[in-house]
């Protein structure tokens, strides 16, 4: 069986304007100011929970919104049939540093549960699952650089053993406010699909470039 990337979203800091992010999807190619409030408004979503999230989760949700615009994947697949397999390099390090500040000073020692909950790499994945009601297989890998082979082989195995029928796959990283995101929607190949490209490590690398 072969699988294809039917939708994708790439968000990265613009190479010439560091205060901007370059956002690319199947139907969009824009350079926008790297301001989370502006980006939120740009997507036109209404999701007040967004404002409680850490930056990593915010970029994950934004990438989902951009990627799935006009594509009702929930109509096509059951909640348990959609998997999510993400990865990054920094884990939740930015938020870890923020939480550590609340306990460093013994006089002002006051650890915040609202921050602590975001001190795990996989919380961005949890936020995506909650917003889009994704209940299938989930996995979070860490590595210094994108492991496209690992993503291809692990996700293909889940498809092959019929644990999932579609998946959100990718890399969601954020360090010091700078996002580096690639999300892909992967499903079984259907030749009629116009956007479809093969789900392979080569194609993942190409989209990530």
């Amino acid at each position: 069986m072969t699988y294809s990337i039917s939708r994708f979203c790439r968000i990265k800091v613009d190479s010439s304007k560091s205060e901007c992010v370059h956002i690319q999807t199947d139907s969009m190619n824009e350079t926008l100011k790297n301001d989370l409030m502006d980006l939120y408004k740009y997507t036109a979503m209404e999701y007040p929970k967004f404002f409680k999230m850490d930056q990593l989760s915010k970029y994950g949700i934004l990438a989902m919104e951009f990627m799935c615009k006009g594509y009702d994947f929930k109509a096509k697949y059951g909640e348990n049939e959609i998997g999510i397999i993400l990865s990054n390099a920094s884990g939740s390090l930015d938020t870890d540093v923020e939480f550590q500040k609340t306990i460093n000073n013994k006089e002002t020692f006051f650890p915040s549960p609202a921050i602590f909950v975001y001190t795990l790499s996989n919380i961005v994945m949890g936020e995506i699952c909650i917003k889009y009601k994704i209940k299938g297989e989930n996995m979070f890998f860490l590595s210094e650089t994108l492991q496209s082979d690992l993503l291809e082989s692990y996700v293909s195995d889940l498809f092959d053993k019929k644990s999932i029928r579609s998946a959100i796959v990718g890399w969601v990283d954020c360090t010091q406010g700078n996002p580096n995101v690639l999300l892909m929607f992967v499903e079984q190949s259907q030749q009629t699909e116009i956007h479809a490209s093969a789900f392979s490590s080569k194609q993942i690398e190409l989209l990530y470039q």
Partner: peptide, 25 residues
């Protein structure tokens, strides 16, 4: 502090050249 780097350090101790896989969920 990056768990991927920590995993690389431990893997190198064993002179293993395959890229380690790190799960943090």
């Amino acid at each position: 502090l990056r768990i991927g780097v920590m995993a690389d350090i431990v893997t190198q101790y064993f002179n293993n050249l395959n890229k380690p896989v790190v799960v943090s969920n």
